[in-house]
Design a protein around this nucleic acid. Structure first.
Lengths: 176, 176
DNA sequence: GTATCTATATATAACAA
DNA sequence: TTTGTTATATATAGATA
């Protein structure tokens, strides 16, 4: 699409890649929107943006309203749950058995990092010692519990966002 | 797109709707694939097909490999579970902050605190803001997750699937 | 970086077999 | 109904401001 055919591989030039990211993200969002309207579907999209050296990858979703995303994810999980061989891992799981697994995890993470050419934000974290990480996870464990409550409250607030979003896209569509 | 302009509303005719669904689903999948390759992203898509009178709506995902979907969903959950709501904050800030220097040798710190009755390192961690903890913890378990899953051997078979999938799309791409 | 601007590549709605 | 074809509508790569 566009003036030249694009090789199906990572776009080397960072600026071009970022531009393409923005354009295509917009395109995907629009498609997802249209798709859900035309066919009356539940569509959900999760996109983790390009790796950046200084910060964690940005998160984009469709719909932008995270409550909607969660709703569809729950629907997904519910329909997948029957299948026995699968266990989902969330943070609770991670923290619960970190004591037995964290050492190996960190070892692997570090190995990956060692092989990586350029360190990313996440990888910098990995350079901390096992002891440091272990202690940190320990400390965060308790802290997190209280955090969950706070966050549950935050979720309630964004109900109108989605509506507004839809409205904008329809408006945009009419002008063509 | 196509011979006629389509009104942005539910396609009334069921057959036409189903056809459109198939075509657009294929298109979205391709876009998602290209997007993830071109920009090196984690992209995940959940689509619940048109409501049907007789059976539950079909579920489609990208990637088709459900383990991959779960991986990205977990990543999403881990990050939204504790994403800061207002205060801008990233790791750079965290690392710059003297109090949060994780470079401190944990043993030394603990020993020091033990003897001098300073607050423990863990306690200092407790005093960090929710945002700081969130950013840090998010970075940690995002990275640890892959190792964890690998440990539990959940990915082996599915990895082949994904490769196959990719292969097909690339093949398809080449023939154009 | 950001915002347009086109020339082309793609996607796909309506048809057709 | 499925598959293939084609005319158009869209998306977007590269260029430019």
């Amino acid at each position: 699409m566009g003036r030249g055919r694009l090789k199906m591989e990572l776009i080397a030039n960072e600026r071009a890649r970022k531009t393409t990211f923005q354009k295509r993200r917009k395109g995907m969002m629009k498609k997802a929107y249209e798709f859900s309207i035309l066919c009356d579907l539940d569509v959900c999209m999760i996109i983790y943006g390009p790796k950046q050296t200084d910060r964690p990858p940005e998160l984009h979703t469709w719909p932008e309203n995270r409550d909607e995303v969660d709703r569809i994810i729950n629907k997904y999980k519910a329909s997948t749950m029957r299948k026995p061989a699968k266990k989902t891992f969330d943070l609770s799981d991670l923290l619960r058995d970190r004591k037995t697994k964290v050492h190996v995890d960190i070892y692997r993470a570090r190995k990956e990092m060692y092989e990586a050419k350029y360190p990313t934000w996440d990888e910098r974290i990995e350079s901390f010692s096992e002891n440091q990480l272990g202690a940190l996870l320990n400390a965060l464990d308790t802290k997190l519990e209280s955090g969950k409550r706070t966050l549950l409250n935050k979720r309630k607030q964004s109900a109108e966002c989605h509506q507004h979003q839809i409205h904008c896209m329809e408006k945009q569509h009419q002008t063509k």
